[in-house]
Design a protein around this nucleic acid. Structure first.
Length: 919
RNA sequence: GGGCGAAUAGCUCAGCUGGUUAGAGCACCUGCCUUACACGCAGGGUGUCGGGGGUUCGAGUCCCUCUUCGCCCACCA
């Protein structure tokens, strides 16, 4: 670690009124890096005999081509908050960063680049294309990781992973072969989702539903031997009729009873097709007759299989009409080579001309589109590799049901369970070039086998004529291994795997719950026989003021780096965290960054100025530690702020919750506890701003001005509570807190807040009486405002009750300064007076020397009395009700009785005052 | 079509297993350059807790229903 010089003595010129975040972010970031604070050490993990509990977070790897957007900012800020919290709490923390090669997405980007150069991947060939993509990734990949550093991400950059690295590729291959050996990977011939633009098959999850307003065409298919009779079918995709091989009706549908087994004449194509009966047909829908197109509809495929029907393919990979397979004589020349949608228009026109189109009615339905390019997906018959999911899903389902893995917020558990309950096999082969090649080779004798190492001869027959499967694996087939592959799997002896797996919390948005989260849990069980993490934190997404998700295409995005440049990383982070309830979307206005990020900007500045005051007032002389402070020397305000610190620490801890389950599973009552980052942020903010700055600092000012023992006590307490406030805030605002913390007196050279211990409550008591002082000051300020007494006008308050007033006597000077009001214990002089009865039972009288409008004061007092009387009536009604006193818990009843006495006393005082003043 | 969730201040949201007089930030109004901070200080709540019904001594909180939004899933072509 490089030697760091001690901070220079503090001068006012050193501390401008606003935090120079740009300079601090650069300097502090560099200092953290130099000190290697974020580097995890496997040997320190308890799992390897070390002293610390491991705490592992694996980044959801952004696409290697990605550029930071505010969604990444949110996601990674949450991870960093948790990471920094646990690091301070003493865990051996690993936040493992990395990127995803993102098969389709990256291939699309490079294809666009090629298009700019006027070429295509087919022109340059597979090897050159892969090389070009590798070069592109080498050049631009990982930009996003640099950007994450700029927002303060404290990841272990030395362990940066990449799904397409040699190490992770080895894990992918091993996983495929193991599943193959277990019979869980198989070759399937069926109708899959096909993207005619990306030219690849897609999984069910990758073909997303989009609502669309289409048309339902009713088309009449005449009987071959009697054109006066026929069957009218309904379809939304008339172009597929060229691949029709039958018309199906329900076996018990009387309307068509006599037609089953007869032959129809297929319009346009002019072919003969049979009428068949199948129970799959819904009698109520459309005409109750269904055209069967086995090659272009997943359900028709099943019907076709049951009835042994042919399966002609009439739509090409590119989405053009043509006689692709088993379709000889089916596509008239006029339609060959036409785009499927153009073909639809022309076929409808021809049907209309031929009188076969009965009607075309508007029809709202869902159309599947490619999740990468939004092209309408074409169901297409083809051969693909599948993973049998039911056996893998079983332990993943049990893990969530029994609390081994908890999902926050809870509502996602139901969605997850629902999905896994009806899981379907996963199509993992993609007809792309960018990705992990499928490790299956087929020999001349047709033996298709999976190999761990590239084979030179067929393992089945020894043939040396071998061809590797041309397809690559779904990107998510590498992503689902992320929790194990990044830690060294399949090498079971790797220290990282032993020390840091299973990980702890997975932080992501819910949109990849199925794509990624569920599959990772399955992979954890499939390959390591345990869940890969115990908590899944599903946060909301960032939206604009119209509740639209921020996106590049809508142009409503916010560039986090722009926010960092304007207001600093801390302001960005604070705003995101404090605005984010559990699973709740964050609303920000891209057109008004000043307003959107005001909470973070304002608080960072406030924090800076509190620090500025403390540093300038306290100076750099020695400061007594909290432990060395004489308890008897503590004043009321000292006790109060120390007590508030304890309470705040407890609140923050409660909001953050347990870092891990105590046992193997989460007890039911702990499943939804913790991770309330907004509540944690608010508790810490309230302490530092509304308690420390608003009250304690104000109270300390006079003490700091007088040299002596009390000044030393105030300095010590001030430094102690600010130090701990900075610790509580550091996970959210790392830069400003580290900058200030390092300048606090008594800091060792080379000490970092980033690894300072997380605060623990110290057990200070005896500060409660300060609440009465605060209440008194509040009341006087309120009356001042109400009677428009300018700050310059001196006033005097009287507390008639000597016993109660005595409690305030020690704080008279503070009241004088903060409320600008002298305090006298004793009866007030007669005459007009502003009046207040406090919750603590104190009665305040402010003569305000002729400034009080008697009528106004009477009206105010009467209003107050009326309100109180009403509430008192309700309270007495409750207390007079026998069923309440019998049935309610004793503590509640006692509390209500105490309240009744207190309110009655206040009402009496008020009544007396009204009589005196108003007659 | 099935499932899930939400509706609280002008806006975004807290309000845990029912129990003080329903809160925060932003916005807004009034007064302050009180030498740490005007990105601040002091004061101010502007609410039929979506409508209706029910359970209870007591409902923002539990149940039913209606209305309006949102999300997930889905093989009615």
């Amino acid at each position: 670690m490089p030697e760091r010089s001690a901070p220079a003595p503090i001068a006012e010129s050193d501390l401008p009124t606003h935090f120079d975040f740009a300079a601090a972010e650069a300097a502090i970031g560099q200092a953290w890096d130099d000190a290697e604070l974020f580097r995890a050490q496997a040997a320190r993990s308890r799992r390897l005999g070390g002293e610390r509990d491991p705490f592992t977070i694996l980044i959801p790897p952004p696409n290697v081509t990605a550029v930071l957007h505010v969604g990444h900012g949110l996601n990674n800020t949450v991870q960093d908050v948790l990471t920094r919290w646990r690091r301070m709490a003493g865990d051996e923390v690993l936040w493992l960063p990395g990127t995803d090669h993102a098969g389709i997405a990256t291939q699309n980007v490079v294809e666009k680049l090629l298009a700019k150069d006027g070429t295509t991947r087919f022109d340059i060939g597979r090897d050159a294309f892969v090389a070009r993509t590798e070069a592109f990734v080498a050049e631009t990949g990982g930009i996003i990781l640099q950007q994450l550093r700029a927002i303060g991400a404290s990841a272990d950059w030395s362990r940066t992973a990449y799904t397409f690295s040699p190490e992770l590729s080895r894990a992918v291959r091993e996983a495929f072969v193991r599943l193959y050996e277990r019979g869980l990977v198989y070759r399937g011939h069926r109708v899959i989702h096909w993207c005619p633009r990306c030219l690849t098959s897609l999984s069910d999850e990758e073909a997303e539903f989009h609502d669309s307003q289409g048309k339902l065409y009713h088309i009449r298919y005449p009987l071959a031997d009697d054109p006066s009779q026929g069957i009218t079918i309904a379809t939304t995709r008339p172009e597929t009729l060229l691949a029709d091989v039958a018309v199906a009706v329900h076996p018990e549908d009387g309307r068509y009873a006599g037609l089953v087994g007869r032959t129809l004449r297929l319009p346009v194509a002019g072919l003969s097709i049979p009428v068949i009966a199948d129970e799959y047909v819904e009698r109520e829908f459309g005409t109750g007759a269904l055209k069967i197109t086995p090659a272009h509809d997943a359900n028709d495929f099943e019907v076709g299989k049951r009835h042994g029907l042919p399966m002609p393919v009439v739509i090409s990979a590119e989405g053009m009409m043509g006689e692709i397979a088993d379709a000889a004589g089916r596509v008239p020349e006029a339609y060959a080579g036409l785009d499927r949608f153009e073909a639809r228009r022309r076929i409808v026109a021809q049907l209309e001309r031929d009188g076969a189109l009965v009607k075309a009615e508007p029809h709202a339905h869902s159309v599947r589109r490619c999740y990468r390019c939004e092209a309408v997906v074409e169901p297409r018959l083809s051969d693909q590799w599948f993973v049998r999911m039911a056996p893998l899903a079983q332990p993943a389902l049990a893990a969530v049901k029994d609390g081994t893995v908890r999902l926050l917020p809870e509502k996602w558990e139901k969605v997850y369970i629902n999905w896994l309950d009806s899981i379907r096999d996963w199509n993992i082969s993609r007809q792309l070039w960018w990705g992990h090649r499928i490790p299956v080779w087929t020999c001349a004798n047709g033996h298709a086998l999976a190999y761990r190492e590239n084979p030179t001869a067929c393992a089945g027959c020894g043939s040396t004529t071998l061809d590797q499967d041309p397809d690559v694996l779904d990107t998510w087939f590498s992503s689902w291994l992320w929790p194990i592959s990044t830690l060294g799997w399949p090498d079971e002896e790797r220290a990282d795997l032993k020390a840091f797996f299973p990980s702890d919390v997975l932080v992501t948005a819910p949109d990849i719950l199925f794509f990624w989260v569920a599959r990772m849990i399955m992979a954890g069980y499939a390959f390591e026989d345990r869940a890969p993490f115990h908590t899944v934190y599903l946060h909301g997404v960032v939206r604009d003021m119209k509740h639209r998700k921020m996106s590049k295409s809508l142009g409503n995005g916010i560039d986090p780096l722009d926010v960092v440049a304007r207001y600093g990383a801390d302001a960005l982070r604070w705003t995101l965290i404090q605005g984010m309830g559990l699973g709740v979307d964050v609303m920000l206005d891209p057109d008004d960054l000043d307003k959107s990020f005001a909470p973070g900007r304002n608080f960072a500045t406030k924090l800076w100025n509190i620090g500025r005051f403390i540093l300038l007032q306290v100076g750099d002389g020695a400061v007594t530690s909290r432990a060395a402070l004489d308890a008897a020397a503590l004043t009321l305000t000292d006790r109060w702020i120390l007590g508030r610190l304890d309470a705040t620490i407890a609140e923050c801890d409660a909001a953050l919750g347990p870092a891990r389950p105590a046992g193997a599973t989460w007890p039911v009552e702990a499943r939804q506890q913790g991770m309330r980052l907004d509540a944690y942020a608010e508790a810490a903010r309230r302490f530092v701003w509304n308690e420390l700055a608003d009250w304690y600092v104000e109270a300390a000012k006079s003490r700091l001005a007088q040299p002596g023992k009390d000044r030393e006590v105030a300095r010590a307490v001030l430094v102690h509570v600010f130090d701990h406030g900075l610790r509580l805030l550091h996970p959210i605002m790392p830069f400003v807190t580290e900058t200030l913390w390092q300048r606090l007196p008594g800091r060792a050279v080379g000490a970092f807040l980033a690894v300072a211990p997380w605060p623990r409550a110290g057990g200070t008591t005896g500060g409660e009486a300060f609440d009465v002082v605060r209440e008194t000051i509040d009341a006087i300020r309120g009356l001042r405002a109400e009677y428009a007494v300018t700050p310059g006008q001196p006033i005097r308050a009287y507390v008639a009750d000597a016993r109660r007033g005595a409690a305030l006597a020690d704080s008279a000077a503070l009241i004088q300064r903060l409320a600008r009001c002298a305090l006298t214990i004793g009866p007030a002089p007669a005459g007009a007076a502003a009046h207040a009865v406090l919750a603590s039972g104190l009665e305040l009288v402010l003569p305000l020397e002729g400034m009080v409008d008697v009528g106004k004061e009477c009206a105010r007092l009467r209003g107050e009395l009326d309100g109180l009387a009403k509430q008192l009536d309700a309270l007495r009604g409750r207390l007079g009700n026998a069923s309440f006193t019998d049935k309610a818990p004793a503590a509640v009843v006692d509390a209500e009785r105490a309240k009744e006495r207190e309110w009655a006393g206040r009402a009496d005082q008020l009544r007396k005052k009204v009589r005196e003043l108003c007659g």
